[in-house]
Every structure is written in structure tokens, then in C-alpha cells.
Write a protein that binds this DNA or RNA. Structure first.
Length: 422
RNA sequence: GGAGAGGUGGCUGAGUGGCUUAAAGCGCACGCUUGGAAAGCGUGUUUACUUGAAAGGGUAACCCGGGUUCGAAUCCCGGUCUCUCCGCCA
């Protein structure tokens, strides 16, 4: 959620910035500002009335004490009118505030100046490509066939137990999952991130704090009886650790990481996009999060991107780096870099990581601040996948396949305990 | 799941309708004192909104939401969380 301050101070800059998202926000912004001035006016009137009431009440108390019962009663009746007016204005104020917040909540984050104008993923800008794509020839298999051939992932079994999109990993396939999780967590810890194991279900306040509510309500699994949501990413519980917290400026940045399964309904997905491990309802991911001083958040974003790129280098996967265009930017993000690995069996790029700076958009909802010079100010929050497992597994299997087995990259072998899948 | 007790400032803790603009203590900050320190003394010590050029002023907040009242930390209703006991359970 943007701060009102931003809207008041920089209406023009704001409106032109949203063009990168292909949005004309003039009307919404002006309506919010209009509500704002109405609200402030009402607030002032209300405060004055309450002041009057407080004073009168004090006087009545004193009159009673000094035994002037009649004068007190008289004053009491006179208060009836003020009371009604206060109730009326109170209701108006609440309505105005509600309308204002509703509109603010609907407004996506303001894109960073470097975000390219664009409508969809085709308008994303490829910044660089690294590593070489393997030459596999005609016999190359997509990962879902490799999974079956070597008994690594059983998709049909998952369908039986739960439904489509809930795979069952087994044998070396299961061990590979565990190896990747441990490898990613170790790398994050080495980089100074504190490891957490957070709850996998969160309440509505938390979902709102990171921006999943109300924007992406339909994408989360919801336990109606207890009104809890299954997390779509560890970002939600990890970032919400800092909801309603004021940090000392010198404690920043705060670096957190965690492995969790992620649950996504993925309503509306279909076709080859969702084949095999490409898109799942439940998948594993290690997430890194930073709470940072506003002056340093973009520097930090670059460092986080480099951290994830190092993971891909260590796994010897060919990858490219994208700067997302305005149309592909998530609701809460100012600037996002995507990393995609080359999937040799499918001959396409697969998104494996999204690293974003949310500036104060989440912090404002979370009320996460830092104290500097005697004042509380909103922090900046950032996060990135480091990394999401299924597509990494897909690429590892496909890219490293041979006629009679799959090689495990060097860096992963201490974790898997085997160097080849046969 | 059942029964009971409770939720007050950074912390401890008083406060059953107006003398509370929340006592007292602790902690913290600054100043005085001192060769330096401790002790002592003094001053200060929440947040949000709003008003004002500033100094300053106003309103709200004692778990949350309603209600009663001229007036609520205090009374009433609903919710929530914590603790204790019982039951169940990996």
C-alpha cells in the first residue's frame, strides 16, 4: 500500500510512473486525494466537538461536587445535541477512512524508473545469458519421462492421493529434493541469512501484510473453519515476522531465509505449461528476505540477484536474467528480476526465481519501521526465491541426461550422496 | 473440548464512574555534582491523526469490537489471546 504522503507530495510523478504498468491512475489518485481532504476536514470538526464535550463533562463533575445540582442537570441536557453530532461525524469519518483505504489497497505499487513499459512477459527485457546449452540430440527426453524412467517422481500416485499438481517424490528423486533444500539453505546461511522454519498456515492479517489479500485471494488455499490460509510462499510468514515492529536503524539490514512447501491453487492454468514439474499446487522453495534501509535497498537487490545467480552457476545450469516489464510486474513490486533456466528436454526457458524490491509497499501494510533521528520511518522489504525446486529439478534432469543415466553436478554430490542416477 | 483466573506505558505494578492530562518503582536519555566514576539531585522519557511558518494546541489509544453515561482503564455484551487445572493426543 502506498502512503498517503506519496500521493499528496508527488501526484504528477506518480501518475506518469504507472504508465510503465499500462495503467492510468489519475482518477483513482484524485479520488483518494479528494477523500483525504474531506477526511481531514471531518477529523478537525470532530476533534473540536470532542474538545467541547470533554470540557463540559469536567465542568459537570465540578458542579456536582460543589453541590450545584441544578446547574449540572441543565448542562447535562445541553450535551445531548453535541453527543448526537459527534456520533454522526464519527460515522462519516469511518466511512471516509474506509473508502480511502479500500482504494489505496487496490492500487498496485509504483514501478521503479528503470521498469520497461510493457504489457506481458514478451515485453520483459533479457539482460544477460550465461552458461552453454547442452547438445542432446534427438533422443533427449522431457523430465516427466525421465522421472518415470528412473522412478524419481510419481505423478499418477499424487493424483490418486490428492489430485493433479501434487507429485510424489521417491527414492533418489526424494533425496534430490532434500539435497537441493540443504544446499540452498547452506548457501543462504553462508551469506548471512538467519534460517527460520515458519508456520505453513497464516492468518488473514499476515496475508494482507505481504499483499496476498485482497489481491490474490483466489490463488491461496483457505481453511474456512479456522480462517487460515496455506502459504503460497515463505515470503508471507517470513516477512510477517516483522509486522508491527520498530527496528533500530543500526540493526538493518535484517536477513532471513527459510525452506517451506508452497501451496498455490493456480486457478486457470492448463496445457503443456503445467506438464510434469512445470507448475504445481504444492512445491518446495527456499526463500530469502531482507528488511533494509530505504537508502540501500536497490544496492541490496543487486546483491540478492547475484546470490541466486551464484546458485545457478554452482549447479552448472544455463540461465538468463530478465528485467520484468510493467505489465508483468507483480502487484506489490517496484522492480523485479527473473531468472530462467534452460530446459533442454523441452527446449524452453523456465522461471526459477523472482527477486523483487517492494520498497515501503509491504512495510506500510505491515507497519514495519525503523527509528532514526527520533523518528519512525517505513523500512524497505525485498525477497527472492533461492530457489524454487521443481523447475530446477526439471532442468537438472533434462540437461544432464545421457543414454544410460543422469549426472549430478559436483556441488550437489555431498548432499545427494550419489553422483549419478541410473 | 470442559472449568477457572487474567490482559494497564520499554519493564514491574497501583487504580471499581469525575481530584488519573494513568500513582509508584525500575530502566533509559540529558543536565548538575566530581580529578574521574558511583551514589545523590534535577529534567525528560509512547504512538497515530489533526492544526500551526514555528513555538505550541486539539483528538484518540489501558487486548480488540460494540453498548450504558454529561463523563469509562473502571459498569454491561461479544470476541481474542495468555496462564492454571481436567480431558484428549504425535
Amino acid at each position: 500500500m502506498l502512503t498517503l504522503q506519496t500521493l499528496r507530495n508527488d501526484r504528477e510523478g506518480l501518475i506518469s510512473a504507472y504508465k510503465a504498468r499500462n495503467l492510468d491512475v489519475t482518477e483513482v489518485v484524485d479520488r483518494i486525494l479528494e477523500l483525504d481532504s474531506e477526511r481531514r476536514q471531518t477529523q478537525k470538526q470532530l476533534d473540536d466537538l470532542k474538545h467541547e464535550q470533554n470540557q463540559a463533562s469536567r465542568e459537570i463533575g465540578e458542579l456536582f461536587k460543589s453541590g450545584e445540582r441544578e446547574a449540572a442537570e441543565q448542562k447535562k441536557t445541553a450535551m445531548g445535541d453535541i453527543k448526537e453530532r459527534i456520533q454522526g461525524l464519527d460515522a462519516v469519518l469511518r466511512t471516509l477512512e474506509g473508502q480511502q483505504v479500500d482504494r489505496l489497497l487496490e492500487l498496485p505499487n509504483r514501478p521503479h524508473a528503470s521498469v520497461p513499459v510493457g504489457v506481458c512477459d514478451e515485453d520483459n527485457v533479457v539482460l544477460s545469458e550465461e552458461g552453454s546449452r547442452p547438445e542432446l540430440g534427438e533422443d533427449a527426453l522431457p523430465h516427466w519421462e525421465l522421472c518415470e524412467k528412473y522412478g524419481l517422481v510419481d505423478f499418477e500416485l499424487g493424483t490418486k492421493i490428492t489430485g493433479a499438481g501434487f507429485p510424489v517424490y521417491r527414492g533418489k528423486g526424494a533425496r534430490l529434493q532434500r539435497a537441493l533444500i540443504a544446499f540452498f539453505l547452506d548457501r543462504a546461511t553462508d551469506a548471512g541469512y538467519e534460517e527460520f522454519i515458519p508456520p505453513l498456515l497464516v492468518n488473514a492479517d499476515s496475508a494482507r501484510g505481504t499483499g496476498q489479500l485482497p489481491d490474490k485471494e483466489g490463488q491461496m488455499y483457505h481453511c474456512a473453519e479456522d480462517d487460515l490460509y496455506l502459504i503460497p510462499t515463505a515470503e508471507v510468514p517470513l516477512t510477517n515476522i516483522h509486522r508491527d515492529v520498530v527496528h533500530k536503524a543500526e540493526d538493518l539490514p535484517i536477513k532471513l531465509c527459510g525452506y517451506t512447501p508452497c501451496f498455490r491453487r493456480e486457478a486457470g492454468s492448463y496445457g503443456k505449461e503445467v506438464r510434469g514439474l512445470n507448475r504445481l499446487h504444492q512445491f518446495d522453495k527456499v526463500e530469502i528476505v531482507q528488511i533494509q534501509h530505504p537508502d540501500k535497498s536497490y544496492e541490496t537487490l543487486d546483491v540478492m540477484v547475484e546470490h541466486v545467480r551464484d546458485l545457478l552457476r554452482a549447479l552448472e545450469l544455463p540461465f538468463r536474467t530478465l528485467r520484468l516489464c510493467g505489465g508483468d510486474l507483480s502487484f506489490a513490486s517496484c522492480l523485479t528480476f527473473d531468472l530462467e533456466v534452460w530446459s533442454a528436454g523441452q527446449e524452453r526457458w523456465l522461471e526459477v526465481s523472482s527477486i523483487s524490491n517492494f520498497e515501503s509497499f509491504q512495510a506500510n501494510r505491515l507497519s514495519c519501521r525503523y527509528r532514526e533521528g527520533g523518528k519512525n520511518q517505513l523500512v524497505h522489504t525485498l525477497n527472492g526465491s533461492a530457489l524454487a525446486l521443481p523447475r530446477i529439478v526439471a532442468a537438472l534432469l533434462e540437461n544432464n541426461q545421457g543414454p544410460d543415466g543422469i549426472n549430478i553436478p559436483e556441488a550437489l554430490r555431498p548432499y545427494t550422496g550419489f553422483d549419478r542416477i541410473t
